[in-house]
């Protein structure tokens, strides 16, 4: 698999059909989980009535926010060790998508929080805070890449920052957990109870899978754009050097 992705030509051949396939399958599964969430799933009085339907949008976005930062760190590491150009293209493509999903997680969480917690924003909630910090890590990553003069430097600087951020994320999570355990009041809704009935769990897991597949398709699309862009740059460089 990694071999296939390491070669740009093979990647282009593979992603030519894999990217649209991922987007289609992801979108279909997403529609199914939304249909389940809005129409099929019964309301749950314990979780605050109808508002728990927000789960089928919010929780997948939270998973994707986490997964995309891990993906950014992993591709950065692969690029830093083996210098596979495609790994850097993947990291560059993941960043804006991950930032968007992180923002989506914050926005939906905030809207969900208003009727259940009575406030748009709860500083005491460790998960919200961790995701907020991750959002800033994504912003910093994109700003740093944009500020670098050459593509090579952008790749190196971005990889260093992504890895420094990645080793910090567990520490940030831990510190925010300790901090919120001091501040937290007991009324906060807990989603991660072990006994979620399958009528909720199945659409939730399918929804998470849907967003993940869709995200992979988007990443491949952006990577294809990047490959085309670099090929164009090569042509311009050749034209300028007159060969």
């Amino acid at each position: 698999m990694i071999r296939a992705f390491a070669n740009p030509h093979r990647f282009m051949a593979l992603s030519r059909w894999l990217a649209p396939a991922c987007l289609c399958i992801g979108a279909l599964l997403m529609v199914w989980s939304v249909w389940q969430g809005l129409w099929v799933v019964p309301q749950d009085d314990y979780q605050g009535g109808d508002i728990m339907r927000a789960m089928f949008v919010h929780v997948p976005s939270a998973w994707l926010a986490m997964a995309s930062y891990m993906g950014l760190a992993a591709t950065s590491l692969i690029w830093f060790i083996w210098r596979h150009e495609l790994a850097d293209m993947a990291a560059k493509s993941i960043a804006p998508l991950g930032a968007a999903y992180t923002a989506m997680c914050l926005a939906t969480g905030s809207i969900w929080g208003k009727p259940t917690w009575g406030t748009w924003w709860l500083w005491d909630d460790a998960r919200m805070m961790s995701v907020l910090v991750m959002f800033f890590l994504f912003l910093g990553y994109m700003a740093l890449r944009a500020a670098m003069e050459t593509r090579q430097k952008a790749a190196r600087a971005g990889a260093i920052l992504a890895m420094v951020g990645a080793v910090n994320v567990p520490l940030i999570k831990f510190s925010v957990d300790i901090w919120s355990s001091i501040h937290q009041d007991a009324s906060v809704l807990r989603l991660d109870g072990p006994a979620m009935p399958p009528v909720y769990l199945t659409p939730l897991l399918i929804g998470g899978l849907a967003h993940m597949i869709f995200f992979a398709g988007l990443t491949m699309m952006l990577m294809r754009a990047e490959v085309w862009g670099r090929r164009g740059d090569v042509l311009i460089a050749r034209k300028l050097s007159g060969s």
Binding site: V133, F136, G140, L144, I172
Partner: peptide, 26 residues
């Protein structure tokens, strides 16, 4: 990281401040 960036002061703040969180909390 921002050494080669002209006028990188704000960039430095954006990069560093998220990493300050654990230290600031404790």
């Amino acid at each position: 990281l921002a050494a080669s960036v002209a006028r990188g002061g704000l960039l430095i703040s954006l990069l560093a401040l998220p990493l300050f969180v654990p230290t600031a909390i404790f």
